[in-house]
Design a binder for these strands. Structure first.
Length: 835
RNA sequence: GCCGGGGUGGCGGAAUGGUAGACGCAGUGGAUUCAAAAUCCACCGGGGGCAACUCCGUGGGAGUUCGAGUCUCCCCCUCGGCACCA
C-alpha cells in the first residue's frame, strides 16, 4: 500500500479536532508558552508567505507541546482595511460579505495545513465583538490625554483617498499602493505615542534581547533621539520669538541666517505685515514649495530654494541682527520648523548660503588646517577646535558643546532639549471599512466622546461602496445624524475610521481570553488570562512590520500596563521575535504581475500538507529568503516516502521488536554502538537546532541522516531489532512537529495507542553520546596529511606518541626538523617542521 | 550620504579558530524494466597524474595564529533600512 496523503491528513485532522488535542486553558501545572504569528489580512486565499510563517509557528508549537509546555497557539484575522472596499467595487459585493467569506475560506485552508491552533479563540477584528473594544480603548486613551485633534500638514495618498501615518510612508510612497505621497493641511486625530518615545527607545536595549539586531536598529533609528538645545531669536518688530533646535550649540557664533519652513506660522504673520505688492513673492514661494511631492521635498540632493524676508532676528548671544529666510529644505514636522543657519558647519546650510550669497563664518577649525569662509568648498561637519567663539576658542568640539550649553543655560541663551524623530500617530482614516471613531461633533460642544455604555458605535454593514474617493458613511444620514451626548442638540457622528493598525496592536491580548462569548461584554480581555499568558514568548512575522505594527503594539502594551489592564511590569508584548524571509521564485518576489505565483492549495493537493511544510522549513534558514522550487518539493516528498516505505516494509518485524531502549553499556559490536550513538546525537542536535538555534533546515537534515542510517543498518539479531525500533520511534517523534499527519499514522501502525502529537519529545541518553573512536587529523604546518582512526580519550602525551610512531608520519618526518607540535586530544596533531 | 545584513560547488545551503562543502536539488554513469515511472548503487569544487598522490580553492588585499570560511584592518560587490531630522 502506498501512502495516501489525502486520506491520512484529513483522518488525523478530524481526530485532533474530535479529541480537542490542541485546546488549552489558562490554568495548568505545566509552564506556559505563548507562540504567535502575525495574523493575516483575509485577502481571499493563503499565499506561500503565510504558509512559511505558519509552518514555522506550528512546528514550534508542536515541538514545545511535546516538550511539556502549556502552549497557547491561536489564529485570527486582521479584517478591516482598504482591499475589502476595492474588492466590493470590483466584484459588486459588500466589504462585509467579501471579508467574511474570505475568513471562512482561509480558515479552511489553514485547517488543511494541519496547523494546531486552538480555533475557539479565533479573533476577527471586523466583528463588533472586537471593534467595540477598539472604541473603548480609544476612549481610555482620550481620557488620559493621549488623543488629540490637530490641523497639520499630513501625508495624503490620492489613490487611497486617505491620510497616512508616518510609518505608512515608505520612501515617499504609500505603503499599500505605492502612490507618491503628498502633503495636505488637514485637521486629523492623533495619538500621542511620543509620550512613550523614551521608554520605547530604552527598552530596545534592556527588554528586546530576543529580537533580531536588525529590527532593534531599525526601531532605534525610527525613534531617532537626538540631544541638543533650543535657542530663541527675538523679533521685536513682529513681537515674536523664533525657537530653533540644534545638536551643535558649539556653532552658535557661526550663525549667519535663520531659515523657516514654508509652513511655519511666522510666515503667515510676515505676509500679513507686508504690503501686498511685496508679499506676493512670498505667497508664490510658499505655494511653489507645497506643490512639491514628499519625495522632491525630502531629497537631500534636491535643489535648495529660499526667499529672503525683510525681517531680522536678534542673535541670542551676540545680539547681532540675523536675516530671516524661508527655505524649502526646512521640515515643519521636525524640531520647531525653524533652524539656525550655520553654513560653515552644516552641508545643507552651506549649499544654501553659497547659492544665495550669505556670509560663511567658520567657528571650528580642523586639525592642522585653517578654513576661510570665502574659499571653503564644503561644510566642515567633523570635530575640531573652536574659534571665533569668544571665551570658548581653543576647546575641542565635544568639550565645547558641553561647556557652551552649560554657559548658554546659565545666561538663558538656550535650554537643553531632547528631540525625537518619532511623530505622533495619525490614527484617523477617511475610509468606510474600519472601526468608527467613537466621537460626535456637536455645533455647540465641539467633539464629544460617545459614552462608554453606548458602545459599540456600529459600522453599517449593508452598504454599497461605489467610489473609493468618498466614504459611504457620509451618505447615510440615519447613521451620521445623532444627538450630542452632552447637550442633546442635533450633532453628527465622526465619519472617519481608525487606522487598522489600531486593531492589530492588542489582538494578542484578546487571544488570551476569547473563549466564552459572554466575556466580550466584560472587557477587551480578562486580566486573569493576560496575567497568565502574556507576554508572547515567540512571535513570528515579516520584517516589513519592524517600524509599523511592532512599534504600535509596544506602545499599546505600555499604555495598557499604565492603566492597569495589563500587569505593571508587563511593558513589552513580545519576548522573542523571529522575522522570516520572503518566498521568492525565479529570483523575484511572487507577484501576479510577474506571473510567478505558486498557489499553496494546488501544491497541497499535489503533494500533501506534510510535504509542503517540510520543504518550506528545509529549503532555507528561517530568516533568509526562500527560493521556491518544485524539484525541492519533490525531494521533500521523496524523503517522506522513504520514511513511510521503511516502516511499511519492515512493519511486522518492527511491531514484534522489543519496544524499549537498549542501554549503551549492553552493546559491544561497533556497528550497534555507532547506530545507537547516531540516534541520540540526532535527538541532541535536532532539539538544539529547533529550541536554541532556530535553524529548522539543519534539524531536518539531521533527520534525513538518521533515515539514511536506518536504511544502512542491518537488523540481524534481537538487540539490533530493538535498536532499529528505537531509531524509528525517535525519528517519527522528532519528525512529527514538521510533518504531523504521516508520522501520526505510522505511529499508530506501529501499535502505539497514544497520539504522537502529544507524546513527550525524546531525551538523549548521555551514555550513548560518547564516541568510542575518533578520526585524528595529522597536520604538517597546518595542512592535513594523514588521518588516523584512534580510540577516543587518549591524553596529549599518549596521542602524540601514537601519532609519532605511525609509519606514514615517520616517513614524512625523515630529513626534517620538528619545530613545535600542537596536540588537541580527540581532534588533531599539528607538527610544525622546517626543511 | 548614514546605519545594518550578506558574498562558500551548477543551485539552496552545512561547518564551538582545528578534516571546507553536512543535508537536499540538479547532473553523470550503472542496476532493475519490453520501455518508462518509481526505486537502488556509484560518482559529483578546479587543475595535474595510469595510480598512490599532489597543487589550488570560502569576493579581493594585508594581518594575528601552530592552524582562519570563522578573529582584526583596508577595499570591492550586493541586498535591506533611513535619508535635507538641524
Amino acid at each position: 500500500m502506498s501512502y495516501d496523503f489525502q486520506a491520512t491528513e484529513s483522518k488525523w485532522q478530524k481526530i485532533w479536532d474530535d479529541k480537542k488535542t490542541f485546546e488549552v486553558e489558562t490554568n495548568s501545572e505545566k509552564p506556559k508558552f505563548y507562540c504567535l504569528e502575525m495574523f493575516p489580512y483575509p485577502s481571499g486565499a493563503l499565499h506561500m508567505g503565510h504558509v512559511r510563517n505558519y509552518s514555522m509557528g506550528d512546528m514550534l508549537a508542536r515541538f514545545l507541546r511535546k516538550r511539556g509546555m502549556n502552549v497557547l497557539y491561536p489564529m485570527g484575522f486582521d479584517a478591516f482595511g482598504m482591499p475589502a472596499e476595492n474588492a466590493a467595487i470590483k466584484y459588486k459585493t459588500k466589504p462585509h460579505d467579501w471579508t467574511w467569506q474570505n475568513i471562512e475560506y482561509m480558515t479552511e485552508q489553514l485547517k488543511r495545513m494541519g496547523y494546531s491552533y486552538d480555533w475557539r479563540r479565533r479573533v476577527e477584528s471586523c466583528s463588533p465583538l472586537y471593534y467595540r473594544w477598539n472604541q473603548w480603548l480609544f476612549l481610555q486613551m482620550h481620557r488620559r490625554g493621549l488623543i488629540y485633534r490637530k490641523q497639520a500638514p499630513v501625508n495624503w495618498c490620492e489613490k487611497c483617498g486617505t491620510v497616512l501615518a508616518n510609518e505608512q510612508v515608505v520612501s515617499g510612497e504609500c505603503w499599500r499602493c505605492g502612490t507618491p505621497v503628498t502633503k495636505k493641511n488637514l485637521e486629523q486625530w492623533f495619538i500621542k505615542i511620543t509620550d512613550y518615545a523614551q521608554e520605547l527607545l530604552d527598552n530596545i536595549d534592556t527588554e528586546l534581547k530576543g529580537w533580531p539586531e536588525r529590527v532593534r536598529i531599525m526601531q532605534r533609528n525610527w525613534i531617532g533621539r537626538s540631544e541638543g538645545a533650543k535657542l530663541s531669536f527675538e523679533l521685536p518688530e513682529l513681537d515674536y520669538t523664533i525657537d530653533a533646535f540644534t545638536t551643535r550649540f558649539d556653532t552658535v557664533y557661526g550663525i549667519t541666517f535663520i531659515a523657516l519652513a514654508p509652513e511655519h506660522e511666522l510666515v503667515h504673520k510676515i505676509i500679513s505685515r507686508m504690503p501686498e505688492s511685496e508679499s506676493r513673492a512670498i505667497i508664490d514661494f510658499v505655494a511653489r514649495c507645497s506643490a512639491q511631492s514628499s519625495i522632491e521635498r525630502s531629497d537631500a540632493g534636491g535643489e535648495k530654494l529660499g526667499l529672503k524676508t525683510p525681517f531680522f532676528g536678534k542673535h541670542p548671544v551676540t545680539g547681532k541682527p540675523i536675516p530671516i529666510w524661508i527655505a524649502n529644505y526646512i521640515l515643519m514636522d521636525y524640531g520647531t520648523g525653524a533652524i539656525m543657519g550655520v553654513p560653515a558647519h552644516d552641508q545643507r546650510d552651506f549649499e544654501f548660503a553659497r547659492k544665495y550669497d550669505i556670509e560663511i563664518i567658520p567657528v571650528i577649525q580642523p586639525e592642522g588646517e585653517h578654513l576661510d569662509g570665502k574659499t571653503m568648498k564644503v561644510a566642515f561637519v567633523d570635530d575640531g577646535t573652536s574659534c571665533n567663539s569668544g571665551e570658548f576658542d581653543g576647546l575641542p568640539t565635544q568639550k565645547a558643546i558641553e561647556a557652551m550649553i552649560d554657559w548658554g543655560e546659565k545666561n538663558a541663551y538656550c535650554a537643553r532639549e531632547v528631540n525625537f524623530r518619532l511623530r505622533d500617530w495619525l490614527i484617523s482614516r477617511q475610509r468606510y471599512w474600519g472601526t468608527p471613531i467613537p466621537f460626535v461633533h456637536c455645533p455647540k460642544c465641539g467633539f464629544v466622546p460617545v459614552p462608554e455604555e453606548q458602545l459599540p458605535v456600529l459600522l453599517p454593514e449593508d452598504v454599497e461602496v461605489t467610489d473609493v474617493g468618498r466614504s459611504p458613511l457620509l451618505d447615510i444620514p440615519e447613521w451620521l445624524e445623532t444627538t450630542c451626548p452632552v447637550c442633546g442638540s442635533p450633532a453628527r457622528r465622526e465619519a472617519d475610521t481608525m487606522d487598522t493598525f489600531f486593531c492589530s496592536s492588542w489582538y494578542f491580548d484578546r487571544y488570551c481570553s476569547s473563549i466564552a462569548p459572554e466575556r466580550y461584554d466584560k472587557g477587551a480581555f480578562d486580566p486573569k488570562d493576560t496575567d497568565y499568558w502574556m507576554p508572547v514568548d515567540q512571535y513570528i512575522g515579516g520584517i516589513e512590520h519592524a517600524c509599523l505594527h511592532l512599534i504600535y503594539a509596544r506602545f499599546f502594551t505600555m499604555f495598557l500596563s499604565d492603566i492597569g489592564l495589563l500587569k505593571k511590569d508587563l511593558r513589552e508584548p513580545f519576548t522573542n521575535l523571529l522575522t522570516q524571509g520572503m518566498v521568492i521564485k525565479d529570483g523575484a518576489k511572487m507577484s501576479k504581475s510577474l506571473g510567478n505565483v505558486v498557489d499553496p492549495t494546488e501544491i497541497v493537493n499535489k503533494y500533501g500538507a506534510d510535504t509542503v511544510r517540510l520543504f518550506i522549513l528545509f529549503a532555507a534558514p528561517p530568516q533568509n529568503d526562500l527560493d521556491w522550487s518544485e524539484e525541492g518539493v519533490e525531494g521533500a516528498s521523496r524523503f517522506l516516502s522513504r520514511v513511510w516505505r521503511f516502516v511499511e516494509d519492515n512493519l511486522d518485524d518492527l511491531k514484534n521488536s522489543p519496544d524499549e531502549r537498549v542501554p549503551m553499556a549492553s552493546l559491544t559490536e561497533t556497528a550497534y554502538r555507532d547506530f545507537k550513538r547516531k540516534i541520540h546525537n540526532t535527538i541532541l542536535s535536532v532539539t538544539r537546532d529547533i529550541d536554541v538555534e532556530k535553524q529548522f533546515n539543519t534539524a531536518i537534515a539531521r533527520l534525513m541522516e538518521l533515515t539514511n542510517a536506518l536504511y544502512t543498518f542491518k537488523a540481524s539479531d534481537t538487540a539490533a531489532r530493538a535498536l532499529r525500533r528505537e531509531a524509528v520511534d525517535t525519528l517519527l517523534s522528532c519528525l512529527s512537529p514538521f510533518s504531523p499527519h504521516i508520522t501520526e499514522e505510522l505511529w499508530q501502525m506501529l501499535g502505539h495507542d497514544t497520539l504522537l502529537s502529544i507524546t513527550p519529545w525524546p531525551t538523549e541518553d548521555v551514555a550513548a553520546l560518547a564516541a568510542d573512536s575518533v578520526v585524528v587529523v595529522v597536520q604538517f604546518n597546518g595542512k592535513v596529511r594523514v588521518k588516523m582512526t584512534l580510540p577516543a580519550g587518549l591524553d596529549e602525551a599518549k596521542l602524540k606518541e601514537t601519532v609519532m610512531n605511525d609509519p606514514q608520519v615517520k616517513e614524512r618526518l625523515s630529513g626534517v626538523e620538528i619545530v613545535k607540535t600542537i596536540v588537541v586530544p580527540d581532534k588533531l596533531v599539528n607538527i610544525v617542521v622546517k626543511g
